[in-house]
Amino acid sequence: MRFSKSLIILALGVSLAACSDSDNNDVEVKPPVVVTPTSYEFTVTITNLTAAQPFSPVALIAHTEGMLWQIGNSASEALERMAEGGDNSQLLTVDFATHAQSAESPLPPGEQLTLTLTTEQLESLKISLATMLVNTNDAFTGLNAIDVSSLAVNESLSRHSHAYDAGTETNSEAHGTIPGPADSGEGFNESRDDINSVAMHPGVVSQDDGLRSSVLTSQHKFDNPVAQIIITRTQ
């Protein structure tokens, strides 16, 4: 039923268009169709739920296809740089991102920040974000390709995020390998000496829980979830 009805409407439209074409001597001033560039605005609020894992500057991107990571696939170099050293510059310019925003500074435990993203497209719109847990070798958290195309204005969705492991650096917790304040050690290193596949993070062990060579203490331990993320469409 619906199909045939729309066919009729389509046919009417075509015949009308044909009429106006052939009658173009009768000057009929049509108001110009004003195409207002529509923009859509989203705020993304991230809360760091951990005890003592600051988050590196959060990278937030809008996209319609692609994923920042996939369990079972090896991490992109952009993801590796963020997960090992907190450097989100390559993630922000990932080729499928249509818009990107970065937090200006790290997000300490127990605090939250809000980023705003404005896009011109709503259809198939997805939001992803990623940030490193900096007192680890290569742990990160975030959201991967959350579809926001059906959110109405002032509607929100809330997610709790897990800790992932980029799989690009062994979780040695050793002195000099952790970029966060617990160690002030090395960030990104291009060698890959772990399983080379993104997984859920097994958690940090720490010197207080049986890893004598660890620079971490019991306060650096974390459990899921590690962050709360609220996405609100504001326009």
Binding site: I71, H162, A163, T170, N171, S172, E173, M200, H201, P202, G203, V205, D209, G210, L211, D223, N224
Partner: peptide, 13 residues
Amino acid sequence: NNTVHRWLNPVAM
């Protein structure tokens, strides 16, 4: 091995 064989939930999707 305490750096390899621990886990945090969830373990499967």
